[in-house]
Amino acid sequence: MTPTEFNFLKTFLKTRSGLMLSNEKQYLVESRLLPVARKAGMSTLSELISKVQRGGNAALEKEVVEAMTTNESFFFRDKTPFDNFTNVMLPALMKARGDRKRLRIWCAAASTGQEPYSLAMLLKEAAPRLAGWRIEIIGTDLSTEVLEKARTGVYSQFEVQRGLPIQLLLKYFTQNGDLWQISSEMRSMVQWRMMNLLESFSSMGEFDVIFCRNVLIYFDQETKSDILNRLAKQMPQDGYLVLGAAETVVGLSSAFQPVQGHRGLYHRGKEPAAGAPRTSSVAGSRLFAS
């Protein structure tokens, strides 16, 4: 791959997905795009790049973007955000939303679904406390391929061994050979949508909790700031934002304030205002019946 071809790909991916490729990432381009080229009947990466440059093949362009933006995920990744969800966010929101008994949660870079399903399992474990509550979890991603895997909820032995406690595996999954499928009940708790964070998500409605982890690191400062400020508009003043361990709002947005003592956790406002008027869609949400 020539420097000119790599520069074209950098511009193409930045425009389509916000992904910033540094020069040392050329190996990543080759490892991810050579399979796309071969699948399309091309023997070299240069052929693929030339085809994309000529335009007119939206499906191929989409495959290139999805191949480069697909990131790994695993159950209960980094553990701390899920402990914070159980011990900090959920108790506070149950108190603040006790009159309405509704919660909306958005996983904004859901990949193959482990993060939303991890939250679904935590909520199911807390079901006795959530009797009568309506919980909506939405998982979005740029890649339709990973979203399809998330919808099926089928994972390899390797995938379920990464972070998933054995008791939850046996409780919520069914084994079929070397594969494990999460239960239909868990699958029914999550809605899946294709979403490019560079585009408007104002139609998504308002969320009490937004997980946007390990995706901002791939954007430039201006794009990070834009996404954070638009996320803030989708949240009430006492909503929570969860970022990855290497991500921060500092210097990017004044719309969020750190929750002291809890790494990666932010409040929508400095002074949380429980009970502020909200509007939200609850279509397809999961009801924890009494």
Rank of each mutant, 00 (worst) to 15 (best):
T279F: 14
Y266E: 02
N176M: 05
E47V: 03
T144D: 15
R54Y: 11
R263C: 03
G113A: 05
K101W: 13
T112Y: 04
M1W: 05
C212F: 12
F219L: 03
F6A: 10
G244V: 04
L228K: 04
M68W: 05
V160N: 04
L123C: 04
R97H: 14
Y117M: 01
F12S: 06
F12Q: 05
S285C: 13
G264D: 07
K124S: 08
S290I: 00
Q53F: 06
R151N: 11
E125Y: 03
E185V: 10
F288I: 00
P165G: 04
D220C: 03
M235V: 02
Y218N: 02
G251T: 02
G239K: 02
L45V: 12
L142I: 15
A274C: 06
V64Q: 12
P3C: 03
A108L: 07
Y266F: 14
L34Q: 07
S46P: 00
Q221N: 13
A150T: 06
F173V: 00
R162H: 15
R100Q: 14
V29S: 03
S281N: 14
Q237K: 11
T44P: 00
K10I: 03
R77K: 11
V190K: 07
T223Q: 08
M68H: 09
D208T: 04
E24C: 07
V146T: 10
V65N: 06
T140F: 09
A110S: 15
K171L: 13
E222H: 02
M194N: 11
Y172S: 00
Y218D: 01
M204E: 12
S188A: 15
M195A: 10
A131H: 08
Y240E: 12
F75C: 02
A246C: 03
V215E: 04
Q260L: 13
K124F: 12
T86Q: 13
G113R: 05
A245T: 09
R38G: 00
F201A: 01
T248I: 04
F158M: 06
G261T: 01
C212D: 07
R187W: 05
D208C: 05
S183K: 05
L228H: 09
V282D: 14
D141F: 11
P258V: 01
S254F: 05
E145G: 01
M20K: 09
G139V: 01
L93R: 02
P35V: 00
E66F: 09
P35T: 02
T112W: 00
V64H: 12
N71Y: 12
Q175V: 06
A232H: 13
L147D: 07
M235T: 06
L198T: 03
Q161V: 00
Q167P: 13
V242T: 09
Q221T: 13
L45S: 08
L241A: 07
A92F: 09
N23R: 10
H267Y: 13
W133T: 00
F12A: 01
S43N: 14
G56Y: 03
G239C: 03
A246R: 08
R268T: 10
M195L: 15
L142M: 11
V52T: 07
V36E: 11
S203Y: 15
Q237S: 15
K25R: 10
L45D: 10
R102F: 04
G264M: 00
K149Q: 14
K14D: 00
Q157I: 01
L198E: 10
A255L: 04
D83I: 05
L169Y: 09
